Computed example of a mutant assay.
Amino acid sequence: MDEIWAVIEERAAHPSEESYTSKILTHSKGIDKSLEKIGEECTEFIIAVKNGDKNRISEEGADLLFHFMLALKRSGVTLQSVWDELQSRRH
Rank of each mutant, 00 (worst) to 15 (best):
A12S: 13
K50M: 12
E40Q: 00
W83A: 07
M69W: 06
L79Q: 09
L86E: 13
K29I: 12
I47N: 09
T26M: 11
T26P: 02
D2N: 07
K23Q: 15
W83E: 08
Q87W: 13
A13W: 09
S58A: 12
L64W: 06
K23G: 14
I46V: 15
N55V: 09
H27D: 12
E60N: 00
L25W: 11
T26G: 07
Q80L: 09
W83S: 03
R74H: 14
S28W: 08
C42N: 07
T78Y: 05
D84W: 07
M69A: 07
L86G: 10
L72R: 01
A71S: 07
S22A: 05
S22M: 12
G76R: 00
S81N: 08
S75M: 14
A71H: 06
S88R: 03
T43M: 13
G61A: 08
E60R: 00
F45I: 09
P15D: 10
G76I: 05
L86N: 11
N55L: 08
S81F: 06
E10S: 01
A62D: 15
Q80G: 05
E9D: 14
E40L: 01
E3N: 01
A71I: 10
A71K: 09
H14T: 15
E36M: 03
T26F: 04
I24L: 06
S58R: 07
E60P: 00
L65T: 14
D84G: 02
D32Y: 04
K37M: 11
V7S: 11
M1W: 09
M69I: 15
I31Y: 08
G52K: 04
G61T: 08
V49Q: 08
K33L: 13
L35Y: 05
